[in-house]
Computed example of a mutant assay.
Amino acid sequence: MSDVRGRPTLAATAEAQLRQDILRGALLPGEKLNLDRLREKLAVGLSPLREAVNRLVTDGLILAEAQKGYTVTPISLANLNEVCDLRLELEPYALRRSIERGGLDWESEVIGALHRLKRTERVAGDQASRDAWEAANNAFHLALVARCDMPILLKMYHSLQALNDRYRHIYLSAAGQQRDVTDEHIAIAEAAVQRRADDAVGLLRSHIRASTDNLRRLIAQSLPETP
């Protein structure tokens, strides 16, 4: 959200910083949020801070409980499995609709996003390169589904993406293990723009499963089975 001059509002700036802190693990899962300390840290008033926090509640990154305040949403294997299952249902559906409805502009956006992702290097231990790769990766996946023309579905997609990104940021950053997904991305994009919907959907499902399996292996010893 921005003001009439196109500048980010205080709430939007605070939201972006809080989102980054949660995704990177600077704010730990299950951590109680002290709004007074956050207000001082982010140099914003209480009203824009509450607006920012409530947006992240909507995305599932923060929990709001009556009389208890705000807490960074805990993580667990059960939660990761639920995120994966929902992605397996919703993203392929959105991709199939995009293939049916997208025109030449959509094809160009998919191929352009793929090209940028392929040219973006991800270096273990280099936060800047990881951030650039994550942004390019998210842009590619969004380009695939953007022409589903279903605003509610896209809102759910963004929430699931944020929840999944948190696991990847926290655990891949700690482990330093990065799965090479270049060939998978190329295969999905080619099938999509060639209008091979069944192939594209199958490849996307396999990609989601493989990426989640990789995370499960990394975190199985450190997370409980239940929330």
Rank of each mutant, 00 (worst) to 15 (best):
L90V: 07
A94C: 13
T73C: 12
L86T: 05
L77I: 10
R101F: 13
L114V: 03
R101D: 11
E89D: 11
V72I: 10
G103M: 10
Q67G: 07
G102Q: 05
L88S: 00
E82Q: 09
P74W: 04
G60Y: 00
I99N: 04
V72Y: 02
A64G: 05
G112L: 12
E107D: 12
I75A: 03
A94R: 03
L114C: 08
Y93V: 06
D59K: 06
A66G: 05
V83F: 03
G112F: 10
G103V: 11
W106M: 04
L80D: 09
L104E: 15
V72Q: 01
S98R: 02
I111Y: 15
V83W: 00
N79Y: 11
D59R: 08
E65V: 04
K68L: 09
V83Q: 01
I99F: 04
L104I: 08
L95Y: 07
A78D: 14
E89R: 10
V83P: 02
N79I: 13
L61T: 07
K68V: 00
D85S: 14
A64M: 05
E100T: 09
Y70V: 02
L86N: 11
C84A: 11
L77G: 02
Q67C: 08
R116A: 14
D85W: 15
G112T: 14
Q67Y: 14
E109C: 05
P92S: 08
E82I: 00
D59I: 04
G69S: 12
C84N: 09
L104C: 07
G69Q: 10
G112Y: 12
I111Q: 14
T71M: 09
I99G: 02
E89G: 00
D85P: 04
Y93L: 12
L61Q: 03
I75C: 02
E109T: 07
R87N: 08
H115C: 07
E91T: 03
Q67M: 09
I75M: 13
I62M: 08
N79L: 11
L95I: 09
V72T: 05
L80G: 05
R97K: 14
S98Q: 06
L88V: 00
T73M: 11
R87F: 06
S76R: 01
G69P: 02
A66H: 11
L86D: 13
L80Q: 02
R97Q: 15
Q67I: 00
I111R: 11
L104Y: 15
D105S: 11
E100N: 09
V83K: 02
G112C: 13
Q67L: 09
N81P: 05
D59A: 10
A64S: 15
L80I: 01
E107C: 07
R96D: 13
T73R: 04
S76P: 03
G102P: 12
L86R: 13
Y93M: 11
V72R: 00
A64C: 06
I111H: 10
L88G: 00
L114N: 00
L63C: 08
D85R: 14
R101S: 12
A66S: 14
L104K: 11
T71P: 01
E109V: 06
I62E: 00
